[in-house]
């Protein structure tokens, strides 16, 4: 099973295996290229020697023989190098947490805890909205009270003004004076009646 080395990739930005593959292919290409250079130098030299019996295919055979040998060693050595690099250099030890993940250690949080916190936030928001609505209702009532109180005080003021008028006209206690007034007017009516009868 391939270890995708995801955590290492998160740090390096590439998969360690790709890095090694890149190096492997490059090295292998160089090996082949250099072998071709060796071969072309030899062929050129043989061309310049008159009557030379060595054919290009013979040189080619030699090249393949040497390259096969080199390739085997190359692969063996490279496998060893890859194993060491993947273990010691391009790897992140199990006990290491990358900086961007430090928060996982500082705030370990299960899904349930997270959900509970979100529920709590939801509830706080509802409570806050309820309080805001309450505030609105209270302020609305305050406004209403202002108007009602003003009206009531105005009414009360009417009574005060009424009494002031009485006082201004020498009428101390309205009730008594009203009774007095009623009496007087009754007397007047009697007198009037009396006068009328006498005049008849």
């Amino acid at each position: 099973s391939v270890d995708p080395m995801l955590y290492e990739t998160q740090f390096f930005g590439f998969t360690p295996q790709t890095c090694m593959l890149r190096i492997y292919i490059a090295f292998q290409d160089y090996l082949f290229e250099t072998m071709l250079v060796v071969e072309s130098v030899m062929l050129k030299k043989l061309d310049s020697i008159p009557g030379c019996k060595i054919s290009p295919s013979q040189i080619r055979e030699c090249t393949e023989k040497f390259l096969l040998f080199m390739k085997q060693h190359f692969d063996k050595l490279f496998a060893k190098m890859e194993e060491i690099l993947l273990q010691l250099v391009l790897n992140i030890p199990k006990n290491v947490l990358l900086p961007e993940d430090r928060v996982q250690k500082q705030y370990p949080c299960s899904k349930e805890e997270f959900q509970a916190l979100q529920d709590e936030l939801q509830q706080l928001q509802q409570q806050y909205r309820a309080e805001a609505a309450t505030e609105q209702a209270l302020r609305a009532e305050l406004e209403e009270q202002k108007i009602v109180t003003a009206e009531l005080e105005k009414t009360l003021k009417c009574f005060d003004e009424l009494e002031n008028i009485c006082r201004q006209h020498g009428v101390g206690n309205f009730k008594e004076s009203f009774a007095f007034l009623t009496q007087c007017s009754k007397k007047l009516q009697d007198v009037l009646k009396d006068v009328e009868e006498k005049s008849k």
């Binding site: 928060v103 996982q104 500082q106 705030y107 370990p108 949080c109 299960s110 899904k111 805890e113 997270f114 916190l117 979100q118 709590e120 936030l121 706080l124 928001q125 806050y128």
Partner: peptide, 15 residues
């Protein structure tokens, strides 16, 4: 979750 947690906690205390 852990990434969000510190900010949600701040949000909670603000609320």
């Amino acid at each position: 979750c852990s990434t969000m947690l510190p900010y949600l906690l701040k949000h909670r205390s603000h609320l």
